[in-house]
């Protein structure tokens, strides 16, 4: 993995850890996501049974929210509060760069944690923008020349010629 990418991810993770440390008795988990909800890093301060599945569910979550919001006259997603039986989710957009989501214990801390999230938005925005530009540059754009079934057949025959199957 490219060292620039790794360094930026580490910085994103440090920010997530700092967010938890601001209110460790209230904030159970922090997820930092890109624009499509793909988790870049997450930090938990308790054993969350569903931390891993939440990780993979977030792209679907963001996509569903975007679908819902597009049908409502409220513009883009700035802030979402969702109360469940076992906790509360606070989701905040990091402008056009991504999202930050936290899971908290009680509604009593909603105001405080929202202030905490806002405090970190600028820093996370800068990091996500850097991350996106570095990762886009690092990955090869495959030249888009159309592949035909005959090309693939040639590859199969080539492989078979190199090795007795």
């Amino acid at each position: 993995m490219n060292s620039d990418i790794q360094r930026i991810i580490n910085e994103v993770r440090s920010s997530a850890e700092e967010i938890i440390s601001e209110s460790p008795d209230q904030i159970r988990a922090v997820y930092v996501m890109d624009r499509e909800g793909t988790v870049i890093t997450y930090v938990t301060n308790t054993v969350l049974i569903n931390a891993g599945s939440t990780f993979f569910a977030t792209p679907r979550f963001i996509s569903s929210l975007k679908g819902l919001v597009s049908a409502l006259p409220i513009g883009g997603i700035n802030y979402v509060l969702m109360q469940g039986i076992d906790g509360i989710i606070q989701l905040m957009s990091i402008r056009d760069a991504g999202y930050i989501m936290i899971i908290i214990n009680s509604e009593a801390s909603i105001g405080l944690t929202r202030i905490i999230l806002e405090k970190y938005t600028d820093r996370l925005y800068d990091l996500l923008r850097k991350l996106l530009s570095v990762s886009e540059e690092e990955v090869v754009e495959v030249i888009n020349v159309e592949i035909t079934p005959k090309d693939v057949e040639d590859v199969i025959n080539f492989i078979k010629s190199k090795a007795i199957m």
């Binding site: 993995m1 990418i5 991810i9 993770r13 890109d34 499509e36 793909t38 988790v39 870049i40 890093t41 891993g52 990780f55 991350l131 990762s135 886009e136 990955v139 754009e141 495959v142 888009n144 592949i147 693939v152």
Partner: peptide
């Protein structure tokens, strides 16, 4: 590793 999941989409772009 899960922490690199945001790269999966980028690497997979244009795959056959």
């Amino acid at each position: 590793q899960e922490r690199f999941s945001f790269m999966w989409k980028i690497i997979a772009r244009g795959m056959h």
